[in-house]
């Protein structure tokens, strides 16, 4: 039973990270129907910036929580900046082009960003300092759930609540929903659609950066290639939940995380990825619109 709970919690942790990244995919897809293939790279850049800031600060003698906060903030700022620039450079000139074009452009951007980090930094796996301290009150349950996992779960929960509030009650959230429903109509009622798209990319990137910092600190290493697999998995989560739907991304992320965790724990950890993609294929066959997605009729 304890093993089961342990697996369940680690699946939940993993799933909440997937959910954080998946939200970026789902929001962008909801608005411009584009798989932002380079989203995983934004996540990786977030983790890398955090790594660099941590490194510099530790060498200049800072320690403790201040490092975590500053590194996290800078990671978010830089990820947002990259997300914003990415949209401006690679996707905006392609608005109105056939659907395949922005997707290929996104793949190109993903390869570009990966190799940019590879050339600018290194191809080695770099040790990421454990930024999250071990809490004392966690001692009695430490064998089931670690402090880092707890922090990840809480951070994700808070972020999700903030995001829901943002989308539901603020002006920009309303504009985002309107753009998602009908872009040209939104433009007609005076919504600056380009701005809304930029904001969507920025929010998505911020979420990815949070995920990046948490994962890097949890796993303890960063590499220029981590964004690729995380991105693909998160996209799987987004599709699983029903792409375009915000609660769907969260549920999809959790389902994916739990599936992987149980499959790895009870069957074999070598085939983790196979289970993830098997699940994706299964969902797509049985319910192509995902768990929470609505089926939309295609019109001519």
């Amino acid at each position: 039973m304890e093993y089961f709970i342990e697996l369940f919690l680690s699946g939940l942790t993993r799933g909440s990270i997937y959910a954080l990244i998946a939200l970026g995919y789902t929001m962008v897809y909801g608005i411009i129907q584009l798989i932002n293939f380079a989203h995983g790279e934004i996540y990786m850049i977030g983790a890398f910036v955090a790594y660099i800031v941590c490194g510099v600060m530790t060498i200049y003698g800072f320690h403790g929580v201040s490092v975590l906060i500053i590194a996290g903030m800078l990671a978010i700022i830089y990820s947002c900046a990259y997300g914003y620039t990415l949209e401006k450079v690679a996707y905006r000139p392609l608005r109105g082009a056939p659907r395949l074009s922005p997707l290929i452009s996104a793949i190109g951007m993903s390869i570009f960003l990966q190799n940019y980090v590879l050339l600018a930094q290194t191809s080695d796996f770099l040790p990421f300092p454990a930024l999250i301290p071990d809490f004392e009150f966690m001692e009695p349950v430490a064998h089931i759930i670690g402090s880092a996992e707890l922090v990840i779960l809480i951070t994700t929960l808070v972020t999700m609540i903030l995001l829901t509030l943002l989308i539901k009650y603020t002006k920009i959230g309303k504009a985002m929903r309107a753009t998602q429903q009908d872009m040209s109509m939104a433009r007609l009622v005076g919504i600056n659609v380009d701005q809304v798209i930029s904001v969507t990319f920025i929010i998505g990137s911020a979420l990815a950066a949070i995920g990046g910092v948490l994962v890097a600190s949890y796993i303890g290493q960063v590499n220029f290639y981590i964004g690729f697999l995380a991105g693909v998995k998160a996209f799987t989560a987004a599709v699983l939940g029903g792409i375009g739907s915000v609660p769907g991304a969260v549920i999809g992320g959790l389902v994916l995380g739990l599936t992987e965790s149980f499959a790895a724990g009870y069957i074999s950890s070598d085939y983790e990825d196979v289970f993830a993609f098997g699940l994706l294929v299964l969902i797509l066959i049985l319910r192509p619109s995902g768990i929470m997605g609505r089926t939309t009729k295609q019109k001519v």
Partner: peptide, 20 residues
Amino acid sequence: SEYRMIIFGAAMVLMMIFRP
């Protein structure tokens, strides 16, 4: 050859924008 992949990536983006 070290810069091969980064050039491929950039070329894919540029091709899509300027010469699809």
